[in-house]
Design a binder for these strands. Structure first.
Length: 880
RNA sequence: GGGCGGAUAGCUCAGUGGGAGAGCAUCGGCCUUACAAGCCGGGGGUCAGAGGUUCGAAUCCUCUUCCGCCCA
């Protein structure tokens, strides 16, 4: 057997094994019809992206699920890909152009798109390479991109069908406009943030000169586009003014005073200005009252001709000038400080502008209804289920989805307008002439589709739809989607809608929604805060296994992850622990011969560790099934470190030393438990487990295609565990005395154990060599109802008493103090238990097993106390 | 303003009706040939506050305070 280096060094190993797995084709499904299928589609990262810690968590979880299922006998497909990320990618390339002093308009549409493709070819694979370093076992032979040919065909098919079904329409509506990205945004692409602003009170005179109405506004410049003033119909203050007319200051337009229930009488003066072309609520109000729409601001955020003297001004300059003019002309009543919630572009963070424009929309209600029902009826399960409420809320009040974007990088909308007869043509193949009038003078829509339009099709477009492919048949619906809540609506809800509509079936059965990764103080990680933990740096520093295990161990459901580098370092110690345990086993495999493990032939510690292993396997499987990755990870951690290493490896030294058959059996058990643990750990730590597994005697080509451990009932034994617990208790008791008296670890201590049970005596006698090894004792004496040794330190256990007779070493006063403290603890406990038992209501109403348990406890405590008191008496005799 | 989540050891968090737990940190002792990235032992908590339900509450209900997130 080769000897391993003293410390685990992951450098070089990770690349080596990843290449091996890929070459062996383990990442590809076998398409074996006899095997159950398991499929996960990756949430496609942006091509512009590089791996951040959120990706690391997201993909670690997916890889754990996927490796687990693959080992457990499923035919597994984890389908990877990237997203073309319209606005983000276009921004990146435009910035590059800007450095050359050019704009995309200098290049023109065709050349610009070529340039983006070039950029994608050069840099778009970075995140894929980073995912490989994390260990992601994706089937790279099926790598997709939202703009590739197949997916573009799917997008086109979906668009045309929705148009034919009347679910897509085009029209003039108010939308969120980003003046910097120069495009429309969907409602959910807007982030609302509080901004310190003002509330201006403006005097609007009545046309007949009989008075005035004061309105309050946070956006005075939009008054140029006012087409009404509105009040609440039941507002006594204004009731007599309804229907009368106002002369708009600065530009003199006459506008009516209307009554509308949406007006909040509490806001400002209770009278509000109505600007239908530049405010969402006003837009709705204008439609109800047939008010005209006056567009005073354009797509660049500049004032239009409609703004009269303000035409050409930037929106912020216009505000200043309007306020100044109002003040100069005596229309400004007062100015208050006011915090406004302003929409910001989720891509570039600049203030978005509600704007009236011609856009394409998808009707959401008919699509949302079945998507809501799918979750309500449990066809799709959200985990943790607390997200259901949020999902339903959003689905119930869903509004039509603005899908057109005024950018170039994306799927161009397949709609043409006949320049002669005005017909709109939406077809699967590019048209040559107008089907209505035969004209060849057609113009294609300039806009492209929202990026999320193509990602909404991801679970079936990536499998080959609209073709009827083998993959689609085998893997749709997919099994699990792993994502974070911030794209629940952007993406998940839309996939459900599109999946149901076009596949007639849900896209996935389960949606696992994981936490957000924050820094150690609970703040979001961001470049500007300078608190980002770069997963690639962490991988280089601590290894991918340590990073993965940390993320898994911290991934408790329903709570954000507070990550700090020290946690990763901590779990790297665990990786090293595993390494050294394997190193120990390998160093002791001399003369190894395989044996079939039979419980009855094994000593107590071996039977114990095998039983504990089964419990651990069960727990890990259960927790994985429940998506409780932290619990699964911690179960292995605890078993491996604190049961296998702390107890079994130590105990095994007894048998290894003994030699012969005892040694053979111990070697077999060590190897069995280690090898099984490695398989159990593999989904969490693929690299170190492979390296060690390959170094051990094994069957098969790779741990990643070895079977996932199953519980072997024949090794489960509660009696064995109880016996071993007794031995461990005795060992811990002796160690405690050793520590209290500062006795050197190598000093052998004499020990006397007293018990009233013959069976306890038998167990301890049988395992006295083990106790001597683990506790560092000698001349172990075990008696039933024997004489207490004089001048001994003692510990009272439930079934036995442990004495270390050290006449000249025992500090009697200190020992009395120690025992008195123990006594006090038990007395309090006993008093509580007795009080409970003396309560007739408790005896009567509590379940019987609880009462029985309490009674046993009372007996045990009484017995322990009695012995403690006797020991105290003995000590006091010496003292006097 | 509406909704959701959280408050348990110094820190991060498990625990969801019947003996307050883990990891890390800390303290004491050990270089005991797998591992000092380690081993052994210990200390540390009116489970945010107040009321209620119950034989019994960290756990269920109500209110309060504070923190986070989402929506308007």
């Amino acid at each position: 057997m080769k000897e391993l280096p003293k410390a685990y060094d992951f450098r070089g190993l990770e690349e080596k094994w990843y290449r091996y797995w890929e070459e062996q084709g383990y990442f590809r499904p076998k398409l074996d019809p006899r095997k159950p299928k398991f499929c996960v589609v990756i949430p496609p990262p942006n091509v512009t992206g590089s791996l951040h810690i959120g990706h690391a968590l997201n993909n670690t979880i997916q890889d754990i699920l996927v490796r687990y299922r693959r080992m457990d006998g499923y035919d597994v497909l984890w389908l990877p890909g990237t997203d073309h990320a319209g606005i983000a990618t276009q921004n990146v390339v435009e910035r590059e152009l800007a450095r050359e002093g050019k704009t995309r308009h200098d290049l023109g549409r065709e050349a610009f798109l070529q340039r983006v493709w070039q950029w994608k070819e050069r840099f778009g694979n970075r995140i894929i390479e980073q995912l490989k370093r994390l260990g992601a076992s994706c089937d790279w032979s099926r790598l997709r991109f939202t703009m590739d040919e197949g997916l573009s065909r799917a997008v086109r098919e979906v668009f045309v069908r929705l148009w034919e079904e009347g679910l897509i329409y085009r029209g003039d509506y108010i939308i969120n406009w980003c003046p910097r990205c120069h495009t429309a945004l969907a409602d959910i692409e807007v982030e609302h943030k509080p901004i310190a602003g003002n509330l201006w009170y403006i005097r609007y005179p009545l046309t007949d000169g009989s008075g005035e109405v004061v309105v309050a506004t946070t956006r005075p410049e939009t008054m140029l586009g006012d087409t009404a003033v509105a009040v609440h119909p039941e507002d006594e203050r204004y009731r007599n003014l309804i229907g009368r007319k106002i002369k708009l200051p600065l530009i003199g337009r006459e506008i009516p005073i209307i009554a509308d229930k949406s007006v909040d009488p509490e806001f400002g003066t209770g009278a509000v200005k109505v600007t239908p072309a530049h405010d969402f609520a006003d837009f709705e109000m204008a439609r109800r009252h047939n008010l005209p729409f006056v567009k005073i601001m354009d797509e660049n955020g500049r004032m239009t001709e409609e703004a009269g003297p303000y035409a050409g001004l930037d929106r912020f300059e216009a505000r200043k000038k309007v306020v100044a003019d109002l003040e100069a002309q005596g229309f400004l009543v007062k100015t208050e400080d006011y915090e406004v919630m302003l929409g910001h572009c989720y891509r570039c963070d600049c203030v978005v502008e509600p704007l009236l424009s011609k856009q394409w929309f998808v009707r959401m209600k008919p699509l949302a209804q079945p998507a809501t029902a799918a979750v309500e009826n449990g066809f799709i399960r959200l985990v943790p289920e607390q997200w259901n409420n949020l999902y339903f809320d959003w689905m119930y009040k869903i509004r039509d989805w603005c899908i057109s974007r005024q950018i170039w990088w994306g799927h161009r909308i397949p709609a043409w307008t006949c320049q002669d007869c005005g017909k709109t043509i939406v077809v699967r193949e590019d048209p040559e002439s107008c089907p209505e009038c035969g004209s060849k003078n057609l113009r294609q829509e300039e806009d492209v589709l929202d990026t999320w339009f193509s990602s909404a099709l991801w679970p079936f477009s990536t499998l080959g739809w609209p073709e009827k492919t083998e993959d689609l048949k085998a893997f749709y619906p997919t099994s699990v989607l792993v994502t974070s809540f911030d794209i629940l609506f952007f993406w998940v809800a839309r996939m459900i809608m599109m999946g149901l509509h076009f596949m007639g079936n849900i896209p996935f059965r389960t949606v696992y929604i994981h936490a957000l990764v924050r820094d150690e103080k609970g703040q979001k990680m961001s470049k500007s805060r300078g608190n980002v933990i770069d997963p690639v740096v962490m991988i280089e520093k601590y290894g991918a296994d340590a990073l993965r295990f940390t993320l898994a161990a911290l991934a408790a459901q329903g709570r954000d992850i507070k990550l700090s580098e020290s946690r990763i370092e901590g779990f790297k110690h665990f990786v090293n622990k595993i390494w050294n345990a394997a190193r120990f086993v390998l160093m002791n495999l001399e003369d190894y011969e395989p044996r079939e493990l039979k419980s009855e032939a094994l000593p107590l510690p071996s039977r114990w560790i095998l039983s504990r292993l089964q419990k651990t396997i069960q727990k890990v499987r259960d927790r994985l099934e429940a998506y409780e990755f932290d619990q699964a990870a911690l179960a292995i951690y605890h078993f491996f470190w604190h049961e296998f290493c702390d107890w079994y490896v130590e105990a095994s030294k007894l048998y290894l030393r003994e030699g012969g058959e005892a040694k053979r059996l111990a070697q077999n058990v060590l190897l069995h438990v280690l090898e099984t643990s490695l398989r159990l750990l593999h989904p969490f730590m693929p690299f170190v487990t492979e390296e060690l597994w390959q170094a051990l005697p094994h069957e098969g080509q790779s741990i990643m295609v070895a079977p996932y451990p199953k519980v072997e009932e024949k090794f489960v034994s509660p009696e064995t565990e109880k016996e071993m617990d007794l031995v461990r208790e005795v060992v811990v008791a002796v160690r405690g005395i050793r520590a209290d008296y500062r006795l050197h670890p190598t000093r052998k201590l004499p020990v006397v154990i007293l018990t009233s049970e013959e069976s306890v005596k038998e167990v301890l006698r049988e395992h006295s060599p083990l106790i001597e090894l683990l506790a560092g004792t000698e001349a172990l004496q075990i008696e039933v109802s024997g004489e207490r040794p004089r001048g001994a330190a003692s510990v009272v256990l439930t079934e036995a008493e442990v004495f270390v007779p050290l006449a000249n070493l025992v500090d009697v006063a200190q020992e009395i103090k120690r025992l008195s403290k123990e006594k006090e603890k038990y007395s309090k406990e006993l008093a509580r238990v007795r009080a409970r038992l003396e309560n007739p209501n408790f005896i009567e109403k509590a379940p019987e097993e609880v009462v029985t348990k309490e009674k046993i406890r009372a007996e045990e405590l009484t017995e322990k106390l009695k012995r403690l008191e006797e020991n105290l008496e003995r000590l006091k005799e010496i003292e006097t």
